[in-house]
Design a protein around this nucleic acid. Structure first.
Lengths: 203, 203
DNA sequence: AGAAATTTTGCAGACTGTGCAGTTTTCAGG
DNA sequence: CCTGAAAACTGCACAGTCTGCAAAATTTCT
């Protein structure tokens, strides 16, 4: 009952993925999501415009679909890790465990480029981060022995999310230099040590 | 030439402020920005719908106008402070110096409520924070002796912005308990000391 | 096969946001 | 005060987003 993976559900998932990919591809081709219409995305995925809107509330959401998937996995992973690890380490290792390295790096860079040049996409992505925050705050609060409205867990999680986003961006700008895991580890270390003490080595 | 404050510009500023306030008031009255149309906002401010869109790209932007103003002041203030203070202290004191305490607290809470219950507003607000990030990153980078693409200044600024937002929210939930300045000071202290060391006193 | 549940689809409708052109208002100088 | 130029306001048209609704098509189960 957990994952019967009925044929029906698989088709739905496939359609959703197809729409997400179509959105990304079209945006790359046209050099910006604003140049793409919902009609075009639906057409490329082989469904009607109306169906597109059944799956996604906006084309921006479609473009970021796989990112959203990834964060969902992260939350589930975090929930598990928090049972055996200090929460800060769980956040760090969870982020590393997403293994973004293994995905198509060129495509990720294209998406990053698209996001950075489109106000609507920037907003959508930040919105998804806040969603992630909302889903994870209870885990962090419990792990720290606080309530979800206390200051400390919110700062902890906020700092971790900022680190994840910042480090991923930084790594993506030069994927050859260092492993993503190394960059994330260094990023988390900054907040562990105290932000006012800059890291010894350059960068 | 710096601020001649021509009559013309004053009128424009007044109109913009009126539109922003109209948006906020209407949203409060109707219990949500999605229940308000651009037409209504324009009507209440006494201009045409087209003019509304000359001032704001969306009703969400109008609703958050004064917030946007505040952050603009913060950036200017920060630029000045960074010349005489360590950057982390400049960020903290700049945040405190915004004096959010002095504004209409009830109205702020209403706005906070509206933002928290509207996906579009959440996205708009996060977008504005990223804008703030973009405007401030050069200042922080220079102050730390790094480039704007280095990891450290981005983490520093990201951490500071998260702290400001988190602390403001937290304070707004119970403005009687402690001063906003106290809450912000404590928030910044968490990242100074190292996030893994939780604060001694409760909260 | 046949009924029930679910998904897809087209259509109508309200709303957003932008370009364009004409009108009105403001400003500066005689 | 008058006048021409600059700037702002406005109405209109238009492309596009997104939602509700009900009919058709598809899948699932018995």
């Amino acid at each position: 009952m957990a994952e019967p993976t009925g044929l029906r559900e698989r088709k739905k998932a496939a359609t959703k993925a197809a729409l997400g990919e179509a959105a990304l591809r079209l945006a790359v081709e046209k050099g910006g999501i604003e140049a793409v219409t919902a009609d075009e995305i639906a057409a490329r995925a082989g469904v009607s415009t109306r169906t597109f809107h059944n799956y996604f509330p906006s084309k921006e959401a479609a473009l970021l679909y796989d990112f959203h998937q990834t964060t969902a996995v992260l939350v589930a992973d975090l929930r598990e890790r928090a049972r055996h690890q200090p929460i800060w380490d769980a956040l760090r290792d969870g982020a590393i465990g997403m293994n973004l390295d293994r995905l198509d790096i060129d495509l990720m860079r294209c998406r990053e480029e698209l996001v950075h040049t489109s106000p609507a996409l920037i907003k959508e992505q930040s919105g998804q981060f806040l969603e992630l925050f909302a889903e994870a705050i209870d885990i962090v609060a419990e792990a720290t022995g606080c309530g979800p409205d206390d200051l400390y867990p919110r700062l902890l999680l906020g700092g971790a999310l900022v680190t994840i986003k910042t480090c991923t961006e930084h790594w993506l700008a030069d994927p050859e230099g260092r492993t993503l895991a190394e960059v994330i580890t260094e990023g988390f270390a900054v907040f562990e040590r105290g932000v006012t003490r800059p890291p010894a080595p350059g960068a």
